[in-house]
Computed example of a mutant assay.
Amino acid sequence: MERVFKAVMLGGAGSGKTSLRNYFLYNSHTGQYTPTTNSDFVSTYITLDNEEMVAVQIWDTSECKPDLLTAQSLAQDADGIMLVYDGGSKASLQALEKHLLTIATASQTRRNKLPVVLVQTKCDLEVGGEQQVECKRVKELCQSRLEIDDIQCIETSARTGLGVALAFQTIAELCHSQWRGAMTPDVSERLPKVRPSRHGDPIAYSAFELETSSGAKTRQRDGSAVRRLRRKLCRLLCFA
Results as ranks from 00 to 15, higher is better:
residue 49 D to Y: 08
residue 124 D to Q: 06
residue 84 V to T: 05
residue 3 R to N: 12
residue 210 L to E: 08
residue 89 S to F: 10
residue 94 Q to R: 04
residue 222 D to I: 10
residue 225 A to V: 11
residue 119 V to C: 03
residue 158 A to L: 06
residue 28 S to N: 07
residue 75 A to P: 02
residue 164 V to Q: 05
residue 118 L to G: 03
residue 9 M to I: 15
residue 120 Q to Y: 01
residue 214 S to M: 00
residue 49 D to K: 14
residue 51 E to N: 13
residue 63 E to S: 15
residue 19 S to D: 12
residue 184 T to D: 04
residue 136 K to M: 01
residue 26 Y to P: 09
residue 19 S to W: 00
residue 5 F to A: 10
residue 118 L to M: 09
residue 56 V to I: 15
residue 55 A to V: 13
residue 177 S to D: 08
residue 187 V to A: 14
residue 212 T to I: 08
residue 79 D to Y: 03
residue 228 R to G: 11
residue 196 P to F: 02
residue 72 Q to E: 14
residue 91 A to R: 13
residue 214 S to A: 06
residue 154 I to F: 07
residue 179 W to R: 04
residue 66 P to W: 12
residue 137 R to C: 08
residue 234 C to W: 04
residue 153 C to N: 02
residue 163 G to Y: 01
residue 199 H to T: 12
residue 60 D to Q: 02
residue 203 I to C: 07
residue 206 S to T: 13
residue 228 R to N: 14
residue 201 D to M: 13
residue 171 I to D: 01
residue 125 L to R: 12
residue 235 R to A: 09
residue 109 T to N: 15
residue 165 A to Q: 14
residue 179 W to K: 01
residue 112 N to F: 15
residue 203 I to V: 14
residue 137 R to K: 10
residue 5 F to D: 07
residue 6 K to N: 10
residue 209 E to F: 03
residue 196 P to L: 07
residue 30 T to Q: 09
residue 35 P to T: 07
residue 139 K to L: 04
residue 218 T to N: 08
residue 227 R to D: 15
residue 22 N to A: 11
residue 210 L to H: 06
residue 70 T to R: 04
residue 208 F to Q: 10
residue 156 T to R: 00
residue 164 V to N: 07
residue 45 Y to A: 10
residue 206 S to D: 08
residue 28 S to W: 02
residue 18 T to D: 06
residue 205 Y to R: 01
residue 174 L to A: 12
residue 125 L to W: 04
